[in-house]
Design a protein around this nucleic acid. Structure first.
Length: 495
RNA sequence: GCCCCGUUGGUCUAGCGGUUAUGACGCCGCCCUCUCAAGGCGGAGAUCGCCGGUUCGAAUCCGGUACGGGGUACCA
């Protein structure tokens, strides 16, 4: 299968509708289209399909742009950045669609249909009952001007339907191979509503043609509308819309949630913004998403975007649906966090600490320095950045807001534990140089050697008293960063 | 109803006529260890949906069938 025509540059696109929150399935589609374009050294177009005013919103549009930038899926042409084939919001291209529809009509490739919703439904039910396909039956295909005038006189407003040539439709899907639809199963379809608004069925192929799109990668939910679009392309060739060629199509499998349902916008796991809020790295999320239907090779599933671009082949995309597994997503993200230089992690942590109210916005120099010093303690312990916030809270929190987890205190700061804490405080008070080595030496000498405690029993009470939790970053390093006075104060408070 | 797509351990995935069926997540055990992680080692878990066919030989090719998903809109 030749995916690319030699000498003809690849132009791929991503063209979501701005409805609701951006979700992960969408990001996966964007990622594959982007990777495909980049792999072939082609262009990537970002277009917005906002032709349905009742469902689209500016807020959703802003989110889409924001999230694409966050992910780092850059586009060469499209909304916000412009390009030769703009505008890139369909709501600003209505005149284009009106013109194309008109030319289709004049060329006899489309026609006005006056059927009412009730009439359509009735005939559809009848066709179904008779075991026939339930699409449009073509009743108004060849209306005479007189018949049309009669309908108009009744006050009916026509839709514009595209006239499907009666032939079988075969195309070579980039991920699924050859697919054929019989002539009887692809009927004339509406391209312009009775109120004059163009539909996706017209606007999407029109823009793809006008923008020179060579490869269309999209979800499998529109696989069955592909014959219509190919037919439209053939019509465009006749009336001179675009360069007369038809793009290749590739239909990506669904991303599903629990059960086998496709991940819906309501499902919290599908909300892209949620991943950013929880502290996923764009590179981690993207890596995981890439794994849903594609793999770099048999051995490795942690890789960079650059490695993906290098290796990405659309023909190796798996056609079957994939279940989104949050655990694995987090594991992959954790791998990416560990791959990052520690200074980088520190920098990315700051906004999350700010959101949690633990550092100022913008952070002061001292705060930045503390973050830089503390990050190595949590770097390899977290799968998401927000986990670091929880682990480091004890270090950044205002002293009067500090509190110890009750359950952990009950277990670790019983009478015996408080005794241990007291010994720890006394030992620590005597430490001359407040650094990790001295702190550890003092504590070991006092608690392990002195009191004869097993290490875990020796340090547990100290940990809980000082960090507020049974689980914390390495203790001695933590105490060093916390500083002598806060450490001693917290130990005293625990007694 | 009609049309299209899909089917490899719980999940994702490799495989493209001959393998002890790949790797990962998760799970279990051990090691390391101041907690939690990370890391290391090991383990359980797949008669490749099912039935036929082609072939010396099939997860791989063909035909059925079952199940799942999608479409069948004046949504995208």
């Amino acid at each position: 299968m030749t995916d690319v025509i030699p000498g003809k540059p690849v132009v791929a696109r991503f063209c979501p509708s701005p409805t609701g929150n951006p979700h992960v399935g969408m990001a996966r589609t964007a990622l594959f289209s982007w990777a495909f374009a980049r792999h072939h050294g082609g262009r990537f177009v970002f277009r917005i399909e906002d032709t349905d005013a009742s469902r689209d919103s500016q807020e959703s549009y802003d989110l889409l742009v924001d999230v694409m930038r966050w992910l780092g899926l850059d586009w060469d042409e499209g909304v916000e950045v412009g390009g030769d084939n703009g505008p890139y919001r369909q709501s600003e291209r209505m005149d284009v669609y009106a013109d194309v529809a008109q030319r289709l009509l004049e060329a006899g490739l489309a026609y006005k249909a006056y059927d009412s919703a009730e009439e359509l439904e009735e005939r559809r039910d009848a066709a179904r009952a008779a075991g026939r396909p339930s699409g449009y039956d073509g009743l108004h295909r060849d209306l005479t001007p007189e018949q049309q005038a009669a309908y108009e006189a009744e006050g009916r407003k026509p839709v514009i339907r595209f006239k499907m040539p009666e032939k079988d439709w075969t195309f070579d899907d980039l991920v699924r191979g050859p697919i054929t639809f019989g002539a009887d199963n692809v009927q004339d379809f509406v391209i312009v509503r009775a109120n004059g608004q163009p539909l996706y069925t017209l606007t999407n192929p029109t823009d793809d043609a006008l923008m020179g799109i060579t490869h269309v990668l999209r979800g499998e939910d529109i696989l069955s509308s592909t014959p219509r679009q190919i037919a439209l392309y053939e019509a465009f060739a006749q009336i001179g819309v675009g360069d007369g060629s038809t793009p290749r199509f590739g239909h990506l499998p669904y991303v599903t949630g629990a059960g086998n349902r496709k991940l819906s916008k309501r499902d919290p796991e599908s909300n892209l913004l949620g991943y950013r809020e929880q502290g996923f790295l764009p590179e981690g999320l993207l890596n995981y998403l890439a794994l849903l239907g594609w793999s770099l090779d048999a051995e490795r599933d942690v890789f960079s975007l650059a490695e993906m671009v290098e290796a990405f082949e659309i023909g190796r995309v798996n056609p079957n649906p994939a279940r989104f597994d949050l655990d694995k997503c987090e594991a992959i993200n954790g791998d990416h966090i560990r791959r990052l230089p520690v200074e980088d992690v520190a920098q990315r942590l700051v906004p999350y600490l700010a959101t949690a109210g633990l550092v100022n916005e913008p952070a002061s120099e001292e705060e930045e320095a503390l973050v830089a010093a503390a990050t190595p303690l949590v770097h390899e312990r977290i799968a998401k950045l927000t986990e670091a916030v929880d682990m480091l809270r004890f270090l950044f929190i205002d002293e009067h807001d500090f509190s110890v987890d009750e359950a952990d205190a009950a277990k670790n700061l019983d009478e015996k534990g408080r005794e241990t804490a007291r010994a720890a405080r006394d030992a620590l008070e005597a430490v001359e140089t407040w650094d990790t080595e001295s702190i550890e030496a003092a504590l070991r000498a006092s608690l392990v050697d002195g009191l004869g405690l097993k290490p875990r029993l020796a340090f547990g009470p100290v940990r809980v008293a000082v960090t507020g939790s049974r689980i914390s970053p390495p203790l001695f390093e933590s105490l060093e960063l916390l500083g002598r006075s806060r450490t001693l104060a917290r130990l005293s408070a625990a007694l």
